[in-house]
């Protein structure tokens, strides 16, 4: 519970700030369903996400959490259901009805996506600075000096030494690559970031540092986040709210510390009791 309290103290500050005068959700998902023939990928998922709010989607492999994330991030068309997003002008738009160029602009500017495998989210053949700068250029930045300054600033914020700016990520450790991917995503000032097991492939000590960094950034920037993870400790540290998925369906949801400390569903109780206590 204390960890959640801690997350609240750090994260809710931004949620509350953002809530003022913004009485509509950032993301509103209704009846989202994906069927593969007769097999259910994900069924009837409905939720609202508010500015500054971090939602963790937890479950085991095959629970449908990755399918859900793929649909939310428009990488996978849903069989049915709608995803609406509050654009910068405040209008809730149906994401499925956006034109391809509108959709791509959203993905490049207002949204971020942090992959478990940083090589999927980075361009491995160009320098660290270019990886960060590229996203700025996508939103119209053209001044080389400014772009490089922003890149340097962001490398610093994710604790990458300035003298690595011209190195390619192929020469980076796993933890550094993941931090670079985060910088690349956040440099354009997104309001919503999707994360797919962002600490998944890392050593435990590297994970702790990354989580700590992520928590600070999410709070400082007031980001809304949907994070998919099978790691309940990650969910506890980062999220305000949890959805537990099993066999494509959300079986339990609520305040993170309540779901983890007082789980109601048999499957959630099993998940929580299966975690090694340290």
């Amino acid at each position: 519970m204390m960890a959640a309290q801690k997350a609240d103290a750090h994260l809710a500050a931004s949620a509350v700030r953002r809530d003022d005068g913004e009485e509509q959700p950032l993301l509103s998902v209704t009846g989202l369903t994906k069927l593969y023939g007769t097999r259910v990928g994900c069924r009837d998922v409905t939720f609202d996400l508010w500015p500054g709010e971090v939602l963790a989607v937890v479950g085991e492999s095959g629970s449908g959490k990755s399918t859900l994330l793929a649909m939310l991030s428009t990488r996978l068309p849903p069989t049915s259901g709608t995803i609406r997003y509050a654009m910068r002008d405040g209008v809730l738009r149906d994401i499925g009805a956006l034109t391809e160029s509108e959709r791509r602009r959203l993905m490049r500017t207002d949204w971020g996506f942090v992959h478990q495998d940083p090589t999927q989210g980075l361009r491995m053949g160009v320098s660290a600075g270019a990886n960060v700068g590229e996203r700025l250029m996508a939103v119209g930045a053209r001044h080389y000096g400014n772009i490089r300054d922003s890149a340097l600033d962001w490398l610093g914020r994710v604790e990458i030494e300035a003298d690595r700016i011209d190195d390619r990520p192929t020469s980076f450790s796993g933890g550094m690559r993941q931090r670079l991917q985060i910088a690349r995503n956040l440099v354009s000032g997104p309001r919503l970031v999707y994360m797919d097991e962002p600490t998944g492939g890392l050593d435990v000590s590297v994970q702790a540092r990354l989580l700590d960094l992520l928590r600070g950034l999410v709070a400082d920037l007031g980001l809304a986040v949907v994070i998919v993870t099978h790691d309940l400790a990650v969910a506890r540290l980062l999220s305000h709210r949890i959805m537990v998925m099993r066999q494509g369906v959300v079986i339990e949801e609520g305040l993170t510390d309540r779901v983890l400390d007082d789980p109601r569903e048999p499957y959630t109780q099993l998940l929580v009791s299966s975690v090694l206590q340290v």
Binding site: M1, D8, A15, V16, D19, G254, L255
Partner: peptide, 19 residues
Amino acid sequence: PRRIIRLRQTTIGYVSQFL
């Protein structure tokens, strides 16, 4: 959940014995 988080930020404090 959102309302409870806001309450914990403004109104209800909790002190346990462990940090």
